[in-house]
Write a protein that binds this DNA or RNA. Structure first.
Lengths: 242, 242
DNA sequence: AGAGCGCTTGACCGATCGGTCAATCTCGGA
DNA sequence: TCCGAGATTGACCGATCGGTCAAGCGCTCT
């Protein structure tokens, strides 16, 4: 397309001799793109906006990234790299299932809280067929890894299935962060501040404990309702779905 | 601005004599706008796109809605109206807290499942300062109502605070639906199909039971870790926050 | 018949869009 | 000292953007 190859060049390896210090321009464009994409979405950002914010000429955006989509992919890629990096330690370590799940939830919350705007950007792309593939490609390995961890304690189907736990906990982490600006104003308090973030962490660990305790009590049963004490409403799904 | 007043006119009340049957044009534009906004976001949709999909002229979009933003607001407004309508019954009825919470979760899941694309659209607007106010205005009463219900059983602060439960359960519902297209492909199965939707409902009710049972066991304590049986990891938050 | 009105049209506007291009600048290596 | 490759610039392109406008349409009421 342009002078550069289509794919984004790996940073810090230009002339094969250039030292580690990254040239400022390319990086500044990327940072400007990040901020704007997060606030306005992909379609809401023009190349001129990015250039102006980065303090460079519009042509430089295309020189370095080929197209607006190229820049967008670079932004996503950097985010997913950080995502994987942030969760790697939590996924690698050993310990009991409870320890590993709590560690994972903690790391996830920490990462999402400091990348809330990205998370919102990713969610926004889920409905867009053009960018769906990008998101999917980067998130799939993470999904499978976490799912594998959950499958050690959760059944394959039923109300406590691994996929159910996965969505519940990831949703509980993600939405605390993506809805933070709205929640802060409506409910009061700063959702992403240190204090409430600590409360959120405690809540999530509490939830992990509740779920695991119940799973251990009746491990991996096929998905029949088990009628826990104090839980009278375990009737089979009689009413029509939806 | 244009010939029409700024605010969207209430449907079915034009000449004060016209019967209930709504004129097709205005409605068709709205429907076309809904579909496109959900797929591409606000900034990704052009007036020409909307007009073409609706089978009308571009000028008609502006005649009926004044501007693209006017059309967008009309789309959001209709969604929130349906949102409130869908939850009204669940919020009004009586019964025990467990019954009401389960009813609320059921209604919420049902609504979100059939309006997943809207939910994604709303989430996408959360990061955009221009449209934040619209979302906030419509969602605030809902928030407060649900929060009030939760405050009957949950403390104001701590790991089981009402706000924590609120985000956890709403996130567990919402993300199942907004992430559905991605999850369906990555994890396999149709997330919004009748079968998995039933499984999701069972999961959420199970979670409600778990949470309420624990809350009843030690009602509204100040948020100290209580060291439940089989839960050795209740150390106080020693490590630095974040 | 014709006045009036809401709905609809297609042409049109200036602004901005993503992207290109040739010319220029910068600077390390020979 | 000069050279050549990469970095940078500003002017430029056709297409599309949101929005406007005057004219025409069909229909009702008088």
């Amino acid at each position: 397309m342009t002078r550069r190859a289509a794919s984004v060049p790996p940073p810090g390896r230009k002339g094969a001799k250039l030292s580690a210090a990254p040239p400022p321009t390319e990086e500044r464009i990327l940072v400007a793109g990040e901020a704007l994409f997060c606030a306005q979405g992909f379609a809401g950002v023009s190349a001129r906006d990015v250039a102006e914010r980065a303090g460079v000429t519009k042509a430089l955006v295309f020189y370095h990234y080929g197209s607006m989509r190229g820049l967008f992919e670079a932004v996503l890629e950097r985010y997913y790299a950080a995502h994987r990096r942030g969760l790697a330690d939590a996924l690698r370590g050993g310990g009991t299932t409870r320890e590993r799940m709590s560690r994972l939830v903690d790391a996830y919350l920490e990462f999402m809280a400091s990348n809330a705007r990205y998370a919102a950007l990713v969610q926004a792309q889920l409905a867009n067929p053009d960018t769906q593939a990008l998101v999917e490609k980067s998130l799939t390995p993470l999904f499978h890894f976490v799912e594998a961890t959950l499958l050690e304690v959760a059944p394959k189907e039923g109300r406590a299935a691994a996929r159910q736990l996965f969505v519940t906990f990831s949703g509980a982490v993600i939405n605390w962060c993506t809805y933070a600006p709205l929640l802060s104003r409506v409910l009061g308090g700063e959702m992403l501040g240190a204090e409430l973030l600590r409360e959120r962490g405690a809540h999530l660990r509490w939830l992990v404990d509740l779920v695991l305790a119940d799973l251990e009590r009746a491990p991996s049963l096929p998905a029949r309702p088990r009628g826990r004490p104090g839980s009278p409403r375990s009737r089979a799904p009689t009413s029509k779905p939806r």
